[in-house]
């Protein structure tokens, strides 16, 4: 029973991994790719690890899988945040079909005010 449930979780995780990497190819700019890939691949890998925990049970490998789930779901958003911030600050523009960019407007004002004050 637990084997079947665990294999089901692994199958769901594989499907979401595949969708995430497909998004990495199809979407147009860095931010959209980051969004699709981070969400889908994190949830997919966490689902695979949970399936591994269900199959192996409470042995050392299963406990390590649970720890790895906590660790991944804490660190991946931080990494995505760092990459998005670095990409925007290094001047990579948004996709041409983007609707609005408040961040660039505010950064522009900041730079101008620091120029006038110095």
């Amino acid at each position: 029973m637990m084997h079947t449930l665990g294999l089901g979780f692994i199958a769901v995780g594989l499907a979401f991994d595949l969708f995430g990497c497909l998004g990495l190819i199809r979407l147009p700019d860095v931010y959209n790719r980051l969004q699709a890939a981070t969400k889908c691949v994190t949830m997919g890998t966490c689902s695979i690890l949970f399936g591994a925990f269900l199959v192996t049970g409470f042995v050392s490998a299963g406990i390590k899988a649970l720890l790895c789930i906590v660790f991944l779901s804490l660190t991946t958003p931080v990494a995505a945040h760092a990459i998005a911030r670095g990409a925007h600050r290094s001047g990579i523009a948004l996709w041409s079909g983007s609707v609005v960019d408040h961040y660039a407007d505010d950064r522009q004002e900041e730079v101008e005010s620091s120029k006038t004050s110095s």
């Binding site: 692994i10 691949v41 695979i48 591994a52 899988a65 790895c68």
Partner: peptide
């Protein structure tokens, strides 16, 4: 890197 973690989990099972 995240995909390789999933790879290792499947190899464990």
């Amino acid at each position: 890197g995240i995909l390789i973690v999933g790879f290792c989990a499947i190899l464990t099972v």
